[in-house]
Write a protein that binds this DNA or RNA. Sequence first.
DNA 1: GTTAGCACTCTTAGATGCCGAGTGCTAAAT
DNA 2: ATTTAGCACTCGGCATCTAAGAGTGCTAAC
Lengths: 344, 344
Amino acid sequence: MLTERQLMILKAIVNDYITNAEPVGSRSVSKREDINYSPATIRNEMSDLEELGFLEKPHSSAGRIPSQKGYRYYVDHLLSPSKLSKRDMSDIQTLLTNRFNEFEQVIQQAAKVLSNLTSYTSIVLGPEVFESTLRQIQLIPISDNQAVVIIVTDTGHVENQTVHFPGTLESAELEKVVNILNKRLRGVPLVQLKEKLTEEISSILKQYINQYESTVEMLLEVFRTHQNEKVFYGGKTNILSQPEFHDVERVRNILNIFEEDALVSKLFRSDDHGLTIKIGEENHFEPFADCTIITATYSLDGKHMGTVGILGPTRMEYPRVISIMDYLSKDMTKLLTAWYQKNS
Amino acid sequence: MLTERQLMILKAIVNDYITNAEPVGSRSVSKREDINYSPATIRNEMSDLEELGFLEKPHSSAGRIPSQKGYRYYVDHLLSPSKLSKRDMSDIQTLLTNRFNEFEQVIQQAAKVLSNLTSYTSIVLGPEVFESTLRQIQLIPISDNQAVVIIVTDTGHVENQTVHFPGTLESAELEKVVNILNKRLRGVPLVQLKEKLTEEISSILKQYINQYESTVEMLLEVFRTHQNEKVFYGGKTNILSQPEFHDVERVRNILNIFEEDALVSKLFRSDDHGLTIKIGEENHFEPFADCTIITATYSLDGKHMGTVGILGPTRMEYPRVISIMDYLSKDMTKLLTAWYQKNS
DNA sequence: GTTAGCACTCTTAGATGCCGAGTGCTAAAT
DNA sequence: ATTTAGCACTCGGCATCTAAGAGTGCTAAC
């Protein structure tokens, strides 16, 4: 168990290191207003804190920096959540009062605001596909042998896809197909579409449609392509302005990750409601060994919808970022609810 | 006018510098098999070439490196186009034999192949909006007050957009609107849609549709949002592996540009048929002051469609990149033509 | 016209030494 | 029993110096 004084010192060191990015020495700790001990006393405590694993030394005659365990303890027990500044709040509000037609625009905006406010990199995941269900499906022929399939989900997400198309299918038949699909598939989760198609629909289609085989094949093709949830970024290169990421090689590794949306989506998805903080190796991902990821979820009727995330150095402005993320994710939930009521 | 020998030397220096990224000295030039002069002679010639502006010295006792003018001369007069290796050709072919439904998939793939083969960053611009015309427009209501508008262009590009929608419009009326639009707007360049709508269509709609005002407004909204041509990237971070871009600040400037598709599209668009090479300041864009951009266009029936581009250091493997770009752009044209014939 | 020779320049890498920040320990002060 | 002052010690960072090496430019000889 840490003593009161050790807590004060640990907190002081983390705060100091977060803002200055430089090892903190005993002298500078002892100079703080709320701490009235001599450097020597601080030194002894720091030595103990190091032994306990909360601090570490870059080298023998430097100050101390927080270890991963130190950050973790700080986040769990020491952190005093900062009040959002008026400015920050109004920035977020501005974003959310913008007119928008598609929910994606909000998500996009959210990513932008988040990275601007924090100067870290933001990642916002759109509604997760496997959660959403089909609201409507449409087939529009655009040439002799091509058609566009439009899928609208219950979350208002619209997706289109061009497919090869049995040219011989007549428009009357086509309409029949669309009607059957809409009747039978409305409300079905996207991930189950394929299954449902083979099990139920295909036999029904057989009754009504001549070209049923090629039609089913086409639909399978549509449903197969696993529609990944979209990923939106803000401030991809912000990480470059952090002093600990001045090494080109390391930066490259991280930037490359952003090119693979599927991977990013896996790394950042969070299913916990509320805030999740993963520090350094807690991410279980080598390139993020000295990064912290903070995620929060936004939801609809208590149903988890998507994730907003921040990627920064472990030396992150935790209090500020946490407040911002909390505020933003809650506002997104509100906005989403309002939007959904209006358009459902 | 440069002498034969000066040409040889200039060429040798550029080639050497391109591969080794280090200033070239007189000794190493004189060691080349095709050059049989002593270092001293080479030195004199190099001194002359410097005076003429084709070479420069990083500092007084280093070798020479090509100046921008030197690269330009090299590209214009000295460059011997390299035969594509079997391997490269087959890589490109593989890409182009992939099945694909949308032309965008080819473009995406092209960007990937291009960056893989060259290890520079590739930028491929999709068909330019202001060139393409409307083939078909569709309106699909998806809720009481929302609809999806689908626009299909003559190039097979499909675009969807969600709009607010006068809820009172009945489906019979809706159909009428769609019919009128398709009849009147087919073949009209996308950029002229707005104009055409206000000048012609709106009065026609007035005759048939009750809710004509809000409908026109909605359509204007759709046509207003300038649908930017899409930009596809390959190897965004490749630039980081070039030794001349090991400075984080400069790299950041360049990477940030990639976040603004509109800007990239402006910088890389090329209207010339064939290959364009812009070296350093020829780009008239400060962050690209030591970059070379090579672009080539792909087309359809001789009509310019889009651009493939490469961004690398001025010290670029010109012969190889040029061959690859030439080959790829021609193949894309071929593929596009075939695809278009099949699907028009 | 070409080249060998040589003095000169300038970068780079290592070595050296010093400064300052910071520690750890001990012994004195509270 | 804490706390603190004092002091020796450590180590990175910085500036200075040196030697090596690569390359040039000039001159004089071929």
